[in-house]
Amino acid sequence: MNTNFSLYVGTSTGILKGVRIEKYENGIKAIPKNLVTNREDISNKNEIKCLNWNNDLYEEILIGMKKKVQIYNTKNEQFTENIDLPLGECCGIFKENEALFVGSTSGVVYSIQMPIKEKKQFEMFKLNKPIDCMKKSSIHPNIIGTGGKNNDLKLWDINTHQMTFIAKNIKPDELQLPIPIWVSDLIFLRSSEKIATCMRHGYVRLYDPLLPQRRPVFNAFQQDKVFTCICDTPNDNQFLVGSGSGDMFLVDIRGRIPFAGKYKGFCGSIKNIICPPTQNLIFSVSLDRHFRIHNFKTRKLLFKDYMFSRLTTLLCKEPSSTNNISSNLLL
């Protein structure tokens, strides 16, 4: 069995799935394989919330679950670490300078020195308010971004525990009522220092921390839509956002119509989207237990597969590291 997985999928039952993507004559195909087989570990209490790589070599996967953190080694195919979280649910995870950083929904970022000694020592710094998402900057290794309910985008320095940027809400509406805030996901763009966020109240915003203005440089609104995830695309001026009722939109920041396209085929909430920069494909997972592949340009649904449990997260390798894989494998 070839275990060169190009994608990893996290599920609500705590199962990590490796997915191999193959091209054949008529189209494209995804073959999943369960990496957790122990019956006791399969439970809705161990829902996987976030996945991340440990470094650029793709040796280990950091798995943030509801109440604990696990590490999976891709070479040995074994789970190496198992750390319990003291408070809240995991909502973001990354590794930097031999230390593991875990964001908790209670509004605390825990840092654990690796390798773990017998006495687990958590260092933590408080963010004052509960958060829904935490992500690391791709350009500056010591900067993280957080956001949550009634808690707009903030950038923090993990070394000094100082706030470096606070976003400001857009102007109130015509009745002078403040616009509600619930940041559900954020992303640091690959090419520039800009940050894109999406909100549960139907807003997609783009911030530039280098400018003196703290308000968003781009703001788009879609009525009655609950945006749950955001993803960047090969094109610098476009993002993909997924909604809680199963709509995936292409957002373009240049034109007069911000929501420039729609991808069809969903019937449940979209939880995560990935659009690799070199391929012309979009991978997405949703709560209706299906994994889908769309064509980025033609917007057609190429493949969908039932994967038995609710799918929550996705993780993929950057294309440069997998040159040695044979040509019929993608990514």
């Binding site: 109240h201 609950v226 009722s245 199963g246 909430s269 709560l287």
Partner: peptide
């Protein structure tokens, strides 16, 4: 819907609203 009743910010497991002709 996943979770308790939340018509504004809830996430749906399955919905036919607005996509009847598609499904």
């Amino acid at each position: 819907q996943k979770g308790t009743f939340d018509s504004k910010c809830g996430e749906y497991d399955w919905t036919i609203f607005g996509r009847r002709h598609e499904l």
